[in-house]
Design a protein around this nucleic acid. Sequence first.
DNA 1: ATAACATATGAACTATATTTCATATGACTA
DNA 2: TAGTCATATGAAATATAGTTCATATGTTAT
Lengths: 102, 102
Amino acid sequence: MTNCSCDSFFVNFSNKARLNIMLLLKTRACDVTTISRNLKIEQSLVSHNMTKLLSCNLVQSKREGKTKIYSLNKKVALPILDIYEKNILKNCCSICKNEKKK
Amino acid sequence: MTNCSCDSFFVNFSNKARLNIMLLLKTRACDVTTISRNLKIEQSLVSHNMTKLLSCNLVQSKREGKTKIYSLNKKVALPILDIYEKNILKNCCSICKNEKKK
DNA sequence: ATAACATATGAACTATATTTCATATGACTA
DNA sequence: TAGTCATATGAAATATAGTTCATATGTTAT
């Protein structure tokens, strides 16, 4: 964990890759290769992104043999992911759709 | 309102200027000049930012004579601002402090 | 209609973030 | 310890976001 400024925190949610990683980790803890295969994100990019998520305390990691298992820090991440899934996903997109119809 | 993708939504919170604008609007509705003076952000930059906030339905606006009054769309913005103020601001920064001590 | 104030817009510039690739490091097994 | 698999890292390239400035547009009052 290096640095997490109070505004760098939300950057993690404004990036599709990291958002999807968190949504995946919400369902189960995963190693890097699993994340990479599931989300079709190149391995080193996953690692780079995990560093950013770690630095803002959004995930935790533990070594397990050769692999490294990442899990969601639910206390920190879930409140925002929940808002995202329950409200924004619907509101935001329906707003766009409505606007486009006009 | 133009376009608000589901991941562009959080970009609004990951930018100091827009975050501060929302925190100001949380306390009271303001016109552009007032925002600009209060937060020491150049006028045209405030306008650019208001466009982005509008496009994600985070603020509303109404003309009032020469000025345009922006107000926070509390239903959409407050849940996240509250998390920011109550948790992230403290957690995030204290985490950084603790890490730096090591 | 013109002047004065308020806000918006577009284009050029600057700064940051994302992505990729090559390669280093770490961990297990034969 | 050499080989293999898993992950991390740094630097370069690319993409996206933020900022500034000049100026256009909108609104009111004279």
